[in-house]
């Protein structure tokens, strides 16, 4: 197996950022709300989990942060960027910790990512309105995070079997 050149890694990161950005945009077109704010499939997380497993933590973090900045400046607002970043960073932190324990499958890692993404956003929302009432959404968002995280995990498991890029 040949070692990938830095150029190849940078090029692949660029492709993954655009893919993740497109996923985020497509999701804004198909609202899944069910009346509860904040429920999304999180398709962009497919790219992040894939990058975590195939390229490492640094690339996964960079791709995700660049994706959020791009999407929020094109289609969102600074407030949306704040929510996205807090959810994404907490989610990635938890996923990285579970990934390094080597005890969890991609599905488990992604499930935890989904749950903590929602927890991160909920904490920022609670801080913004300075109330704990908002934690009423916690059980719903927890279960929603589990379901979407598991779906994303299954997708990544299948994708990484088909895509055999060695980086």
């Amino acid at each position: 197996m040949q070692t990938a050149s830095p150029t190849r890694k940078v090029a692949l990161s660029g492709v993954l950022v655009s893919l993740a950005a497109i996923f985020s945009y497509v999701e804004t077109l198909v609202p899944l709300g069910f009346g509860v704010p904040g429920i999304k499939l999180g398709l962009a997380n497919v790219v992040v989990v894939f990058a975590l497993y195939s390229m490492g933590v640094r690339y996964a973090l960079t791709i995700n942060v660049v994706r959020i900045i791009v999407v929020a400046s094109l289609f969102g607002s600074p407030v949306i960027m704040l929510y996205s970043l807090s959810g994404a960073l907490l989610s990635l932190l938890v996923m990285v910790i579970l990934y390094y324990t080597n005890k969890f499958s991609m599905v488990g890692v992604s499930m935890a990512g989904g749950v903590f993404h929602n927890i991160g956003q909920l904490l920022v929302a609670a801080a913004v309105v300075e109330t704990f009432q908002i934690l009423y959404y916690f059980p719903v968002l927890l279960v929603a995070g589990m379901i979407t995280g598991i779906i994303i995990g299954i997708i990544v498991t299948r994708v990484s079997r088909l895509v055999t890029i060695k980086i």
Binding site: L98, T101, K103, F104, S105, V107, G108, L142, M146, I154
Partner: peptide
Amino acid sequence: EALQMTKADLLLAVSFLLAGIICF
């Protein structure tokens, strides 16, 4: 594939569900 989750995965899923139920 979904069933190929590890023991740790299942434990994590159960604790998430418990936390949700307690909150509820």
